[in-house]
């Protein structure tokens, strides 16, 4: 059990955060730039001194950063230039503080899919490749509490999924607690168990991801998306697609990029859905789902539709003109066309 109690005066506001998490839980910290997310991690890790942090009833607030049993991966966390990629990872293995979490090097490499990068020079890596190696290095330090500050900002969504799934895997199988900061709600919704929303240093929301991300999603001005869980992936190599079935449903989807080592859920941007009342047979859209309009929310420049697809929520964002043109009411059965998945 990790208990955090931070009350720290920063330059423009006071950082005031209290929460507690069980071991093996992933916490996503979400907030705009300047909200104090990085400062929060620094305070928890001991880089800023004197905050109340207890781990398993032990007060670790006054311990040096290397004795706290946690690793903080800063936003600016460069690889060591005097070693190559493998050297950086071995460095972490060799010099890790003694603890119970001994992640093996090859296990980590295959988990994150970075074996092709091992012999590269640090200076030849792209930004995204660097981030993957940095993350691997952090994991290899073997701490049971890992704090991550925007660890995947340079990665595209497909690569990100793999790593987010790896976090979920490690949290569940190796009982590692992760506290991850991101300004991408999508990322956190995908993998975090609990979410913490930070605004101007104040903890405005804390709770289970499904609830909190939904609440944040509903706020005006955020980009809307939803996740659909699926199962039974079948590869159709002749079309370069993967066919998946929605959970508790007969409906299927055809996905472009599917990674075996990832969670079986797909992120659908609310903007990438069009809706029709009738099912069009001759249409170029291969991903059409039957759904029911549960409710809608009219906002200034968009109308948000809350659709139910066999028990799963799907969010769709329409231009007010498009909504007018659609001309439907709640309770009606609609067809959602998913583009770009």
């Amino acid at each position: 059990m990790l208990q955090i109690n931070i009350n720290l005066a920063l330059k423009h506001f006071v950082l005031d955060v209290q929460f507690e998490v069980e071991q093996g839980i992933i916490v996503g910290v979400f907030g705009p730039s300047g909200a104090g997310k990085s400062s929060l991690l620094a305070a928890i890790s001991g880089v800023s001194a004197g905050q109340s942090v207890t781990n398993r009833q032990q007060n670790i607030a006054n311990l040096a950063p290397d004795k706290r049993g946690m690793s903080l991966q800063l936003q600016a966390c460069p690889l060591f230039p005097h070693l190559d990629v493998l050297g950086n990872l071995s460095f972490a293995c060799k010099h890790r503080p003694k603890n119970n979490n001994q992640l093996a090097l090859n296990e980590t490499v295959s988990l994150l899919g970075i074996s092709d990068l091992l012999n590269r020079e640090v200076s030849s890596l792209s930004g995204g490749e660097q981030q993957r190696i940095v993350f691997a290095r952090t994991l290899l330090l073997g701490q049971n509490i890992i704090l991550l500050d925007e660890p995947f900002s340079a990665l595209d969504w497909v690569k990100k999924q793999r790593l987010l799934w790896a976090i979920k895997y490690l949290a569940k199988n190796k009982n590692i607690t992760f506290i991850m900061v991101s300004h991408s709600l999508k990322e956190l919704s995908y993998c975090a168990d609990k979410m913490l929303q930070l605004k101007q240093g104040k903890m405005t929301r804390f709770g289970d991801t499904e609830i909190i991300s939904q609440q944040i999603n509903n706020e005006q001005g955020t980009t809307h998306f939803s996740f659909l869980n699926f199962q039974q992936p079948r590869r159709l190599s002749e079309h370069n697609l993967t066919k998946v079935s929605l959970i508790d449903s007969q409906q299927v989807l055809y996905i472009n990029q599917f990674d075996e080592k990832s969670s079986y859920k797909i992120c659908v941007n609310a903007n990438d859905i069009s809706v029709s009342l009738k099912l069009e047979r001759n249409s170029s859209c291969i991903n059409t789902l039957q759904c029911i309009l549960v409710s809608f929310q009219r906002q200034q420049y968009e109308v948000l539709l809350f659709l139910d697809v066999d028990g799963q929520s799907l969010l769709c964002s329409l231009n007010p003109l498009a909504w007018q043109q659609l001309g439907v009411t709640t309770g009606q059965t609609l067809y959602a066309h998913l583009h770009a998945i």
């Binding site: 991966q73 966390c77 230039p81």
Partner: peptide
């Protein structure tokens, strides 16, 4: 400014940082 601060945050001890980094 580049490497030592990151290493401290990651949790490397002082002696390890001094001799090996």
């Amino acid at each position: 400014s580049q490497y030592n601060n990151a290493a401290i945050a990651l949790g490397f001890s002082t002696s390890k940082r001094f001799f090996f980094l």
